[in-house]
Simulated scan of single mutants.
Amino acid sequence: MAGSVSTSFRLRRQLLGALAAAPAAVLAGAAHGAGAPDLSGVTLVLGDQAGGLRALAEASRVLEGAPYTYRWANFQGAAPLFEAQRANAVDIAPAGDLPVLAAATGDPSLRIVATRVGSPTQLGLLVPQRSGLHSVAQLKGRTVFVSSARGSIAEYQLDGALAEAGIARADIQIRYILPVDAFAAFMSGSIEAWATFDPYYGIAISRGARVLRDGTGINSGLGFITASGAAHANPLKRAAIADVLQRLQRAGDWALAHPQAYAEVYGTLTRTPTDTALAITQRASLKQHFVTAADIATLQKVADVAVRDGILPRALDVAALADTRIGTV
């Protein structure tokens, strides 16, 4: 899953052909007006996790005809993705709520520029199919592996499940591991409990893993897209990012209207069986909009809980991190 998700233009055409609801020109939106900035000299590096955002963009073809150059940089989890963003190696980064907050504690220059709405069932706690563990309470005294690093949505999920079961963090051993390594260890039987997220979560379930507790009632189901401080401060890059976000918003609407077509393309691009791809994409964060006051309030609650529970090292003012006006660029 950490490898390249590139595929040929011809294959995309074959898969989408008659299924696309509108020609690429419609999906890509109207051309920029005469007063729009010249973005022809701009190059954006679009960060991604496990190929999900790229699959969405390529399935819907919304980036065709973009007035700037772009390239993809794929990472297996939020921790390495945000390391790259902090180093200005990527311009935008998609991630769940807590990873964004964790990244902001080390890089207050990043800006939250879009919200993505999904289901909290896209992550949870897994145990092997034949495991003797049948409740979160039984994790006491056990070791739980968390993808991918401290401050991930998987850790927030674990903390919420432990609190619900009346177990303190001190009652278990927590180990952090990157998702690809965790997946291999889990499937080999080396991990007895694993807190993780899609697509690793969905693929493990399709291969027999049992859900001990999913994210319903614990996680917000919201994801976010952040811009690096350097990219956000550059007027031309900021304008290009605003355009990318509008295109990705149309991509999400297309995917929600054509779930089977999107699942087929997602499965091909990420090398995931179509039935598993459909389960993953149906709960994915596809619906996208620019950041609202309600999103900020929801994320602030997550931040406050994470600080209270010691997951985040300090308090954050989410409103100061969010750009609610980039869509007006």
Rank of each mutant, 00 (worst) to 15 (best):
A2P: 02
A2T: 05
V5D: 02
F9R: 12
F9Y: 10
R13V: 06
A18I: 02
A21G: 08
P23D: 15
P23T: 11
H32D: 14
P37S: 14
L39N: 08
G41R: 15
G41K: 14
V45R: 08
V45K: 01
D48W: 04
Q49C: 09
G51L: 12
A55K: 06
L56E: 14
E64R: 10
Y68T: 07
T69Q: 15
L81Y: 03
L81K: 03
E83M: 03
A89E: 13
A89F: 02
A93G: 08
P94W: 05
P94D: 12
G96F: 08
A104F: 04
D107V: 01
P108N: 09
R111N: 03
R111A: 03
R111E: 07
T121V: 12
L123M: 14
G124K: 09
L126C: 02
V127T: 09
V127D: 14
P128R: 03
Q129S: 13
R130I: 01
R130Q: 13
S135E: 06
Q138N: 07
L139M: 02
R142H: 08
S147V: 08
S147K: 03
S147I: 05
G151A: 04
I153F: 06
D159L: 15
A163C: 04
A165K: 11
A170V: 07
I172T: 06
R175V: 15
R175I: 11
V180Y: 00
V180I: 08
A182R: 02
A184V: 15
M187G: 14
S188C: 09
I191F: 07
I191S: 12
I191E: 08
A195T: 03
A195F: 02
D198C: 05
Y200I: 15
I205L: 08
I205Q: 13
S206N: 09
G208N: 13
L212I: 05
R213C: 00
D214C: 02
T216V: 13
I218Q: 01
G221I: 04
T226P: 00
A227D: 05
S228M: 00
A230F: 01
A231R: 01
H232T: 00
N234C: 08
A242H: 10
D243M: 02
A251I: 00
G252N: 11
A261F: 06
A261H: 06
A263S: 14
E264Y: 11
E264C: 06
Y266N: 13
G267W: 14
T268V: 15
T268N: 04
T270F: 02
T276N: 00
L278E: 09
A279H: 12
Q282A: 07
K287S: 12
H289F: 02
A293N: 10
D295I: 04
A297C: 07
L299I: 13
A303P: 02
A303Q: 10
A303H: 03
A306S: 15
V307Q: 11
A315H: 14
D317Q: 08
D317M: 06
L321Y: 06
L321H: 11
I326N: 03
T328V: 03
